[in-house]
Nucleic acid binder design. Structure first.
Length: 437
RNA sequence: UCCCCAGUAGCUCAAUGGUAGAGUAGGUGACUGUUAAUCACUUGGUUGUAGGUUCGAGCCCUACCUGGGGAGCCA
């Protein structure tokens, strides 16, 4: 009699069970048959293992049936774990029993190249593919590392609202929703203003959640719904923001390098690129310096303007590393930015541009803490003052210098994983003209 | 909103204006170490839609639809 002490084991932990009989519960990634041997690639979410079935071990009818199971058939497999140098993971499973849960025919996503439209239409199934699986694991790891980073530095997580009564910055287009009877609400585009309030209560805070942009952007760097991390520091300065964002990026890259080796290998990511970022020491240049640099390049840049995509690309390429650009002309930055005391035409803002074309990953700076200055700015930008009264209260009751930044999660994950497009870096991307599935 | 590109088998793609094809998936069979296995046979089509030019249109023209890339704006 076979014993009943069979234990269910995650594929990722099979190495700890060499020589033991185990059960793996998962899905059939692929099945190759060599006549009297079947090779089953079984994935269970934690990894993939190859199961070997030799004719004679199972009754013939069962052996035939297993050989005809389609891709993504769900099944339970019993077998003995065996060390095998031929396996990429070092172990194989000598299968003694297969219990199909569902026999699948015509799984839509074949083991071949597919176009983006087809894959996005089948995003719910595409997630099962090796590379997408790896990206999701890295994303999860990055989110964890973000939480750890801020927790270790004494920050408090403060969740920002998603419904907001009006624009946070008044620039980008917002998604409008009906809020009961006649009222309108908007989906937040940033939690920053709320974090400023939270920082006055808790000192060092951050929020991390989805934000929404109704801009009709159709590029590989844009989503209409994406996740943004926004720390805010009471008594913080522009320098603090630059130091903190660099330390964060270094931490994220280091963590992923240390804990996601398998995933990065699956994604065929060039590790030397990541290791370079993990060393830190990002160049920091002023807008004025960047402008001089661009003058020697041929991007059509005009001093005083914001950088366009070609300018950003040229700067990123010139340094080949993440580069921080700070002290921007005030008129092209948001109303709440503090002016540089050394030159009031400049705003104390900073953007971090990633190399390899991933664009602006971090944007932030020091906030204006002076009440009268903000009142003037709101008037100059023709913003409705009554909507900002609560924000102005922060300058009426114990105002202090403070600073913060925002980091786009999907751009960061795309950068780390080397993906061409941010849509692969969020489980279910929401984009212009695409909200299915 | 603007510019560029593409829509042919379930999927990935071919096809000088002249009989619509391959690979893969699906089906049938062979094979005891395969790594997207291989080999043989086989099912599968309103060429995105509507017009137009032509003896003849997958191919040329117009409009529309869908998708992709980019600009602007942003993370």
């Amino acid at each position: 009699m076979e014993s009943n002490i069979m234990i269910q084991v995650d594929v990722a932990r099979l190495k700890e069970h060499i020589g033991q009989k185990v059960t793996v519960k998962g899905w059939l990634y692929n099945c190759r048959s060599k006549g009297k041997i079947h090779f089953l690639q079984v994935r269970d979410g934690s990894g993939t293992v190859q199961g070997i079935i030799i004719k004679g071990v199972l009754p013939d009818a069962e052996f035939e049936h297993v050989g005809k199971l389609g891709q993504e058939s769900s099944l339970e497999v019993d077998g003995t774990v065996r060390e095998d140098t031929r396996s990429p993971t070092g172990v194989e499973l000598d299968v003694t029993a297969v219990r199909p849960i569902q026999d699948v025919k015509d799984y839509p996503i074949a083991l071949q190249e597919h176009g983006p439209d087809f894959l996005l239409q089948n995003r719910h199934l595409w997630l099962r593919s090796r590379k997408q699986h790896a990206v999701m694991r890295v994303r999860s790891r990055v989110e964890l590392a973000i939480r750890q980073f801020f927790d270790n530095r004494g920050f408090t997580l403060v969740d920002a609202p998603i419904f907001t009564p009006s624009a946070c910055e008044g620039t980008t287009t917002l998604f409008e929703v009906k809020y009961f009877d006649e009222d309108k609400a908007y989906l937040t585009q940033s939690g920053q203003l709320y974090m400023e309030a939270a920082a006055m209560a808790l000192g060092k805070v951050y929020c991390f959640g989805p934000v929404f942009r109704a801009e009709k952007s159709k590029t590989r760097k844009h989503l209409t719904e994406f996740w943004m991390l926004e720390p805010e520091i009471a008594y913080g300065t522009l320098e603090d923001v630059m130091d903190l964002s660099e330390a964060l990026i270094v931490h994220l890259f280091t963590e992923v390098l240390n804990t996601c080796k398998q995933e990065l290998a699956t994604l065929e990511r060039d590790l030397t690129k990541l290791e370079d970022v993990a060393r830190g020491g990002f160049p920091r240049i002023t807008y004025h310096e960047a402008s001089k640099l661009l003058a020697t390049m041929d991007t059509g840049f005009v001093h005083g303007n914001d950088f366009g995509a070609p300018d950003e690309q040229a700067l990123a390429q010139h340094f080949g590393r993440p580069v921080m650009i700070h002290r921007w002309p005030a008129e092209i930055k948001a109303f709440y930015m503090k002016r540089d005391p050394a030159d009031p035409t400049l705003a104390l803002g900073v953007d971090l541009i990633a190399p390899e074309g991933y664009g602006e990953v971090v944007g932030g700076g020091q906030r204006a803490e002076d009440l009268q200055f903000l009142l003037d700015q709101i008037k100059a930008h023709q913003l409705p003052q009554e909507a900002f009264e609560w924000y102005l209260d922060l300058r009426r009751y114990g105002t202090v210098p403070h600073a913060g930044f925002g980091l786009g999660l999907e751009r960061t994950v795309a950068w780390i994983t080397g993906r061409e497009h941010v849509r692969e870096c969020i489980p279910f991307p929401r984009m212009l003209y695409r909200i299915y599935p």
